[in-house]
Nucleic acid binder design. Structure first.
Lengths: 185, 185
DNA sequence: CAAAACATTCAATTAAAATTTAACGAACTC
DNA sequence: GAGTTCGTTAAATTTTAATTGAATGTTTTG
């Protein structure tokens, strides 16, 4: 039955399309551009793809695919491999999308922690200098103190985030919140 | 000493500026526009602000402040209050920036879980239909099966994320990873 | 070593977001 | 109820980001 096959193909495409779309939307939340998101979603269903296959599948230009696949590599959800016989680069999507995203997050979080703690510590010094300078008007010193309290207080939350990230990266978090039924490997 | 006060003011501004900048950069990571991020950072140091004060402080237009402050309200890091005697709306930043961000995250994560699980379940149905249709070529059925396995497998990670969000929202996570020294209130 | 097959860079274009000015409408004041 | 004072909406502009076609450089092949 020709018809059955045709309908089946369409059904598969529809199924794939839905998932690709929602994956892309998810990644968009995390600052990945929609096209890179769609690309990842597409690769998720394929074993390995060349740039030309990507461009064909997404109907986009090769440079677009090149940059998209690079950003996907940067966030570690896609890796480059070789394929004997072919001169083309071949890319494969990390199937464990979720763990990849968590890792991606950890990187962003750590960056955030470092960035903010640096800024806070720098500012604390500035404010301390004002607070300790008795030649400065009381009102101004009071303001400095107020600000100091505020940012000093916030530090502990960044420290906490640091421990959270650690627990994600070591996998300790899964001891507290186990994955329902981890895969065999 | 006039000079001391002047320098103190500058030091305070510098200190504030640094922190505002890094807060804005952090929020940018989470899809908040830079101006909204700067606004939150600025409000973080103030007790309450009107739209006019914001526009003055950030040197931007009033509609910009209006939209920025609305997005900040939507993600629950800013709240509207009243101030007797004034007809103007007054907004105050949630000082516990960190907890707010976590809450914000939980919302996004839950949305992501719902979205993806819906897409997956819909697709699973489509694929099941293909798999069970014996009139469809073996190769196509095999492809459907392959895709089915893939997306079915991913479901458990979304379930896991669901439990993580729960643990954040109930505060259970802090039993596992306590905050160094929680504030008195 | 010339030609072909790649991936990438660059400049130019196009598309999308953010921002502003102007206009509107609601709520208050006199 | 006329005139203000606000906040928001709408249209137009500016800014920024994504996308492409052409060109470049590198590796491979015959």
């Amino acid at each position: 039955m020709q018809d059955h096959n045709e309908m089946a193909r369409e059904a598969i495409e529809r199924a794939k399309g839905n998932v690709v779309h929602s994956i892309a939307e998810t990644m968009d939340l995390y600052g990945v551009t929609p096209s890179a998101g769609r690309l990842y979603g597409t690769m998720y269903f394929e074993n390995a793809m060349t740039l030309d296959e990507m461009k064909e599948e997404l109907k986009m230009s090769k440079p677009s695919m090149s940059t998209a696949v690079r950003t996907l590599q940067e966030i570690n959800v896609v890796h480059k491999t070789w394929q004997k016989g072919s001169r083309k680069d071949v890319f494969v999507a990390e199937k464990n999308f979720f763990k990849s995203l968590i890792h991606f997050f950890c990187i962003k979080w750590m960056r955030e922690v470092r960035l903010n703690l640096e800024a806070i510590e720098m500012s604390e010094k500035d404010l301390q200098a004002v607070i300790q300078d008795s030649k400065v008007d009381k009102a101004i010193r009071a303001e400095a103190e107020r600000h100091y309290e505020l940012i000093h207080e916030s530090k502990k939350y960044y420290y906490w985030l640091e421990t959270l990230v650690e627990s994600f990266e070591t996998g300790d978090i899964f001891r507290y919140l186990p994955i329902p039924d981890d895969d065999k490997k």
